[in-house]
Design a protein around this nucleic acid. Structure first.
Lengths: 339, 339
DNA sequence: CTGAAAGCGCTTACAG
DNA sequence: CTGAAAGCGCTTACAG
């Protein structure tokens, strides 16, 4: 592997000029720049990242801290973030907090501290104040996705708003007995998400003159199975079964569709079901849902980090605007059956 | 952030000794070692990764190249690999090849070359010979998971064997008309997987004296939807519907269960269905499957890399043995209906 | 077992 | 616009 001096020799300039030409930092005349680039590609020169980092203090690497990897939302955000980072010439170093407490501690007390990242992206993790502090002590750009982190800029969809809109979709179809499968409170990773989505649901009902009934609300764990069980319970109510179900996640909504089917109910003939997510499988299930585009969320977070890392390089990405969501109407929602 | 000299001063030794005590390279007397550790933790010293890498040539970082991130198999392997790397003090840098060709080229021609990784883990990607060559030119340990890579050590389950066993499970229950939903050939990421699994299926049938019929075989794309469509086609055959279906992936098997149900067939009353994967959702669907434990595959690959990176540190992990699979019998398989 | 010193391969004030 | 040179913060032969 050739070093920077080989390139300098071939191009007939100093290593300083090679550095400037290749990195874009500092002025180099167009003609020398071209000669340097030619020499570099002729030799197959690629800068040594450790040497560059040591000298400049910049690593061109972003650390991403995630509570789970193999869940749709998280892996989708990762995919979007990784691709956006690559386009910007950055690496993505992944810190999964899936292991035990020791593992988690070592991430915050060791891994993130060894000057290997320029910025940190934190996905819906509830951090202890100590962990948050050690992140802030890094004095590096941080952005969070999915939940408020004190002192950290966070990207999030408007949970209240989307729940309100989803409920309004059902109300607009004529439903009045609308059940909700919410998030379990104390669900450690999603902050206020369960509360907010429930609030939106209840507000929509009240606005429409329907008093929310606790009998129509059941929390679950965001999985297909959890949704299946909750839906089974809600739809088995012999007295006054809801004609529609709003699930706080698509996986729970899919579980609900399967539950309805197993109860002999047709969707949407007997029950309408709506979710939130835009999960990759929602199309297959014909699920009406509010899509939240996690890949774009990941890419968006990267834009914000890049703005902070390279101020003035271009117009900054607007921040603090709620992320876009989009209603995708499929075949799981329809007017209620005639009563 | 204190540097190594602050630690040296506090411990009353040279920086050389601090380096040796903290890294474990070279001899240090127990008492000095202890003093150094105390000084380091008192100051909150963490080694600068770029400086250490530049001086030593080691990065304590492994690059993982994946074709997809947000698919169950890949994200599960990632999870296992990441956690194993963390335990060994290594970072995981993720290179997703989800973008276009340009992105892909830049990974191989730029990102992987900048001396930022000590080793590479490649997940079931079909590499061009150029890409493979640039990996090999790195002269660094490489291990692949999931498919043979010329000149690279690869970890893989025994695809022929597992398909054979899955088919034998159905044969053992008394089935004779056994359909298969295989992988599409030319499915760019899984090498010989489709062919091998089909071969195992056919071998099991022949051994049992059943001639495989092309009418009972349909390829699909490894998704729920693909499995649903293929199963619908196979099970609609009015002439001689199979009494059992072997799907080359759990997602396709789940799609098959849903298809059977939509056709009014009971599982396993009318049709038995078996998959391969041990997918997180297979339990919910009651799916009998051969589990392949991708997290463990990721961890296993890391062990092998660590053995190569630190020879003699411990007994090397055995390599080249097929990865373990395990039959998990649930409620989707049973003897065929009386004919 | 420990230290002095060279060196890893870049980047960037500083000077021109 | 370009170069000479210091310096980034470690690691590791070499010597003792």
């Amino acid at each position: 592997m050739p070093g920077i001096d080989a390139v300098a020799a071939l191009a007939g300039v100093s290593t300083a000029t090679v550095s400037r030409a290749l990195s874009g930092n500092g002025h180099v005349s167009p003609s020398t720049r071209m000669r340097v680039h030619e020499a570099a590609s002729e030799l197959g020169y690629v800068v040594s990242s450790p040497a560059s980092s040591l000298a400049s203090g910049r690593t061109k690497n972003v650390g991403v801290v995630v509570p789970f990897i193999s869940r749709w939302f998280y892996s989708s955000v990762l995919e979007g973030a990784g691709s956006a980072l690559l386009k910007n010439g950055y690496d993505l170093t992944l810190y999964g907090l899936t292991g035990g407490d020791d593992e988690r501690r070592s991430v915050f007390e060791h891994f993130l501290l060894r000057k290997r990242v320029d910025a940190v992206l934190a996905l819906t993790i509830e951090l202890t104040s100590g962990e948050l502090q050690s992140l802030l002590d890094l004095k590096k750009p941080i952005v969070g996705i999915g939940g408020p982190l004190a002192g950290v800029q966070t990207l999030s969809i408007d949970d209240v708003g989307v729940a309100l809109l989803a409920t309004e979709h059902l109300l607009g179809l004529g439903h009045r007995r609308i059940g909700m499968i919410g998030g379990e409170s104390g669900f450690e990773l999603d902050f206020h998400l369960p509360t907010n989505r429930r609030a939106g649901y209840e507000r929509a009902l009240r606005t429409a003159g329907v008093e929310p009934s606790p009998r129509y609300f059941l929390p679950a764990d965001f999985t297909i199975r959890g949704g299946y069980q909750a839906a089974t319970a809600l739809l088995s109510d012999p007295v006054a079964r809801p004609t529609a179900l709003f699930a706080a996640s698509d996986e729970m909504a899919m579980g609900s569709i399967l539950a309805a089917r197993d109860l002999g109910l047709s969707v949407p003939g007997d029950v309408s079901i709506i979710g939130i997510d835009g999960h990759e499988h929602s199309d297959f299930f014909g699920l009406t849902t509010f899509a939240q585009f996690p890949e774009r969320q990941g890419a968006h977070a990267v834009e914000i980090l890049m703005d902070q890392l390279h101020p003035g390089r271009r117009d900054p990405t607007p921040t603090n605007i709620p992320l876009p969501v989009e209603l995708i109407v499929r075949t799981s929602t329809a007017p209620p059956p005639p009563s």
